[in-house]
Write a protein that binds this DNA or RNA. Structure first.
Lengths: 259, 259
DNA sequence: CGGTATTTTGAATCGTTTCAATGGAGGTGG
DNA sequence: CCACCTCCATTGAAACGATTCAAAATACCG
């Protein structure tokens, strides 16, 4: 299926190619605290199993429930949330309008990364599917970590931030896709690529978000999203039953976007 | 007219509030080289009239002609272009499609800022209206500048990069505006705010770009942009004759977006 | 003052939205 | 374990708005 879009960079492997990616269960499973700490250290590029210095930075590995708010628009920015399992949705009120869905955070991605470089949060992020997140104290980072750890973690976050900027640029280019079919196809391929880059199967996944959220994200009406998915299903490009998606012909989906 | 959108931060004043903004002529005027160097130094936050160290970083103040290409998609990223006069348009081929307009650079803004943190250019930027730009050698920065100069320039660029990210986020939210009228209104207000933040009048300006470019940028057909402008003109919200725009009722335009 | 590129206008088509009503899934409590 | 309730997904039909295609008018540049 080649590269589906320009945004699918494995965050967890960006800076350390030799870093064996951790295995994450897709459904919500609350790992033991020590294990979570260890996983987080690995993700951040810290090899030492002795990650005692992380104890003050990684505040907690935290089970989260549906609709729980991680941070709210206007909050002062301090924490990052590494999504271990479950998923999140972030929205913002830009242009003075009603809140619009700005993006989704899948397992392996970092909620709050969009705030780096700013003092206030500009999104509201809430939990879509219950799971667990690791809360990192961004301010504490600089004070606590050992010099070499700090550099590694910082460069990791810088990389993650660049990845987020690319995702944003990709989203911005959705405006150029006029037809609902193209937008939905692009959306599915983007999700597939992100799942893949975090170690999950690309052609078979469960949509964490509602049809309404997809519609808002893509700038379409909910009914249009539904009809488009059904149409793609009937043409055997995908299999779609409620939240379960299977990509049957990724190349054809790519062609849709290009035409 | 209050704040029109969340992206209107005076780049030239972001980090140094006490920095008197330089006067720039709107139409193309090629300043003498020394003068340009001095202006550039001021914009970057360097007070010393002795900016000899800038000589190796600011390669040249360079008159540019319409359609001239500053950098091309895939080029290795090295230079930033401070737009002194004239304006630029940047486009990219995302999602494997035909090139899409991704944004515009007005006088006082920095073309190439979107590449910071990446090794390759991901946009193609060309000149819309002839003018002059200052070419900065981004790689040379670190090697050449004195320590305190380097820090000041770097933090300036970081701030500019954050501003670009906010503009990108604003553009991303265009997807949420369904009607052509809302998109055009948002576009005009965004332009007005950017002109204002760079020291130009907000309610009376000349569109640097063609109707076709606006249409591509907003994800509309060119004819729709024309008809929408005409409609806003007839309703006396704006005055529009070819490239000359006057905003007659900014509040009403804001209301359009909100409704 | 030409010649070209851009802007403007009109009319028909197409696709998306909207509104309204039905169907189904998941969660809670008896 | 089932009934119930609520939220979410689905379907249909009508209306609206943007696109498309084609032609004319106007601006811009050398």
């Amino acid at each position: 299926m080649a590269a589906w879009n320009a945004c699918n960079i494995p965050i967890t492997q960006k800076l350390r190619a030799s870093n064996k990616r951790m295995e994450m269960k897709f459904s919500a499973t609350v790992a033991c605290r020590d294990c979570a700490l260890y996983q987080t250290a690995k993700v951040l590029g810290l090899e030492t199993p002795d990650c005692s210095s992380l104890n003050r930075v990684v505040l907690r590995d935290h089970p989260v429930n549906k609709n729980e708010v991680l941070y709210r628009e206007g909050d002062s920015f301090r924490y990052l949330y590494l999504v271990h399992s479950g998923s999140c949705i972030s929205s913002a009120t830009i242009l003075g309008r009603k809140s619009q869905v700005m993006g989704f955070y899948l397992p392996g991605e970092i909620a709050g990364i969009e705030n780096i470089g700013q003092s206030l949060c500009n999104h509201t992020t809430r939990v879509l599917e219950k799971g667990s997140v690791c809360q990192l104290d961004f301010l504490m980072l600089e004070e606590t970590l050992k010099q070499d750890e700090l550099i590694r973690v910082q460069s990791y976050l810088l990389g993650a931030s660049a990845i987020h900027a690319r995702q944003l640029q990709w989203e911005r280019s959705l405006t150029g896709l006029q037809s609902a079919e193209q937008r939905v196809a692009a959306f599915l391929l983007n999700l597939a690529g992100r799942f893949q880059s975090h170690g999950f199967p690309a052609d078979r996944f469960r949509l964490p978000m509602s049809r309404e959220a997809i519609a808002d994200y893509l700038g379409l009406a909910m009914e249009t999203v539904i009809r488009t998915l059904k149409n793609l299903h009937n043409r055997k490009l995908i299999s779609s039953q409620t939240k379960n998606i299977e990509i049957l012909d990724g190349d054809a989906l790519s062609d849709l976007i290009r035409s």
